[in-house]
Design a protein around this nucleic acid. Sequence first.
DNA 1: GTACTCT
DNA 2: AGAGTACAACGCCTT
DNA 3: AAGGCG
Length: 338
Amino acid sequence: MDLRWKTASSPLPRLAAGQESQKCSQGESEVGIMSFIKAGNRKLEISNEDKVFYPDSGITKGELVEYYKRAGDMIIPYMKDRPLTMRRFPDGIEGNSFYQKNAPKGIPDWIKTEAVKNREGGTTNHIICNDVATLIFITNYGNITPHIWLSKLDDLDKPDKIIIDLDPPGDDFKAVRSAVKLIYELLTDELDLPVFLMLTGSKGVHVVLPLRPKNKFDEVRDFASELADFLAQNHPRELTTEVRKSKREGRLFLDVARNAYAQTGVAPYSVRAIENAPVAAPVNYGELSDKSMNAQKYNIKNIFKRMGQVKDPWKEINRHRFSLGRAREKFERLKSKV
DNA sequence: GTACTCT
DNA sequence: AGAGTACAACGCCTT
DNA sequence: AAGGCG
Ligand SMILES: [Mn+2]
Ligand SMILES: [Mn+2]
C-alpha cells in the first residue's frame, strides 16, 4: 500500500449513482480524479470523494458531500445572508485544520461573496452560503463545519439572536442537562421568553433566544452577560462565567462571548470534526431528559430518521423574535422582586 | 485543497 | 508533467 | 502589546 491517503476499503455507492469518477482533462492539463454531483441546476466537481476523512468510522469526503446535499434544504434557511466562516480539514479530521473567512482565490463567480468590514477597518470577503450548491462547493474544499454570524447582511451590527453557549467541563452530559434545566426555567417560567435549543454535536448545548435585530452587539452581549452572571450567582456550585479555564473548577461555563461582531456559531445541522460525524441538532426541551440524550446523539447517519419523525424544532424561530428592550424590562422586574 | 513557481 | 511551497480568523477581555 | 479563549 503506497497510497498518499487512505481511501474507503469497500465498494461504496458513488456520488450521484451512475456518474463514474474519471480522470478528466482540460485541454492539455490533467486535473486528477474527479467525480461530479448535481445541486440545483449546477454540476459540481468533487475531488477525492473516496478519501477517508474520519479514520475510525471510515466516513469519506464523498459521504460528507452526500450529507450536505440531502440536508441542504434544511440547513440553508439558517445560513441565508449570514457571512460564513469555514472550518476546513483538507486531509480529514486528524489532519491540519484552519478557519477561513476570506473566500478562496479562484472560486467560480456564481458563489455569492460580500466584502465585510472588520473591527480594525480592514475588510473580509466572506462567502454567503445561500444555496445547496455553495454548501457542497465548500465541502469539496474540505469544509466540515460551517460557522455563521449572528447577524445578517442587511444589518451586520445587530444580531438576530443571543447564543448562550453551555460548555461542560467534561464529557458527562448530566451537567449539561441540569444546566439547561436551570436556564430554561429562568428564561421561560420567570421571563416568559421563547427559547430554542441545539445540541452542538460536540460536548454542549446552545441556548438561543431569537431577537428582533434592533440593538447592536455590545448591548445584546451585555444583557446576555447579565443573564449568565445572574444564573452563575444563583447556582455557584454548578455554573460559572469565568473565562479562565483554571478558575472554572469543574463547573459548566456559560459562554456569551459569541455575541459579538464578526463572531460566529456553528450552523444548525452542520457536521462536526469528531468520529461518527455528529451534527449540530436543534432539539425540543422535553427531549433532553431522554436517557439516551447527549450532545453527539445525532450524526450524518441517523439525523434523517429523526427529521422524518420530528418537525424541525427551530422551524418557527423567526416568528418568535422579540425585542431586547422587552427582555430587559422583564429581567429587571424579576430582579427587583425579592 | 488549490494556485502558483520552479525544474 | 511533477515536485515543492504558500496560504487559509478574529473580537473581547485580562494582565 | 501580548496571551487566553472560543
Ligand atoms: Mn461550546
Ligand atoms: Mn493537501
